[in-house]
Amino acid sequence: MEITVTVNGRSHRLDVSPNTLLVDILREQLRLTGTHVGCDTSQCGACTVHLNGDAVKSCTVLAGQADGASVVTIEGIGAVDDLHPMQAAFREHHALQCGFCTPGMIMAAIDLVEKSDHLDDAAVREGLEGNICRCTGYHNIVNAVLSVAEAKA
C-alpha cells in the first residue's frame, strides 16, 4: 500500500506493507537511524518521535496509522552546530552515559516541557516514565530537562 508521510518537514510518498512499523519506515526506508529500537515492546521509549505534535513510541505505530501524518525525529530538531535547547542541556548536564536512550529521552522531554505549565523534579521523573535509561543515569537527565523548563518559565 502507498502512504504519504511528512518527516522533518519533507513529504515522502512510500510503498509499504501493512505490517511495517513507523520506526522501520524511519530507519530502513528513510535511513534516519537516530531513532533507536530498544525493546520493540513499547516499554523503553528509545524509539520516541513526535507524531502530529505528540511524543509516541514509533515501534507501536503502524504505517497506515502514520499515513498523512507529520513526524519529527531527533534529526529534525537541531543540527551539530545549532543544537536544540534540549540537546544543548543534555550536553551541558552530561545527561547521557552510553547514549542509546538519548534520542527518545530528548524527544519525550521536549514534548513534556512544551505541554507542562510547571515542572519540578518529581513531575519530570513522572513525565519520563515511558523512557528507560539502562545505565540508570536519570539524575542528570532530570537536571537537563529541569534547566530547559526553568529557561522557558
Binding site: G127, L128, E129, G130
Partner: peptide, 9 residues
C-alpha cells in the same frame, strides 16, 4: 494510565 507516550495513543 501507562506513560505519556501511551496516553497520546
Amino acid at each position: 494510565i501507562g506513560d505519556n507516550q501511551v496516553r497520546y495513543r
